[in-house]
Amino acid sequence: MRNLNFGYGISRPRVINLDNNDLRKSNAIIAEMPELQACIGCGSCTASCTAGNLTDFNFRRLHTAVRRGEYQGAYEEINKCMLCGKCRLVCPRGINTRELIMLIKRKLGDF
């Protein structure tokens, strides 16, 4: 029964809707770390990421989505990070990415 396949399913909307997203946490993250807005999406953090080379963890995409108020699954995802800090060494905008991971964890995990 559980494995019955009707050949169709229900897709969740993939659209980022900035009218409905609750941007309060995202705004709080940016307020604490304004330099995050200076990200130019170069992907150096993802390219150098220890976790990203072993799993599908993509740090650039994750923090971009968080800035847009897309928090679902982000906390669980970010736990893949091993806090090695390599991303911070390469960011051309000098963003303290390791600190950013802690900040996102704090804001999204509410601890």
Partner: peptide, 12 residues
């Protein structure tokens, strides 16, 4: 499209 997250984006 918010190409850096790879998802469509909508807002007013």
């Amino acid at each position: 499209e918010d190409t850096l997250t790879g998802r469509p984006l909508r807002m007013s």
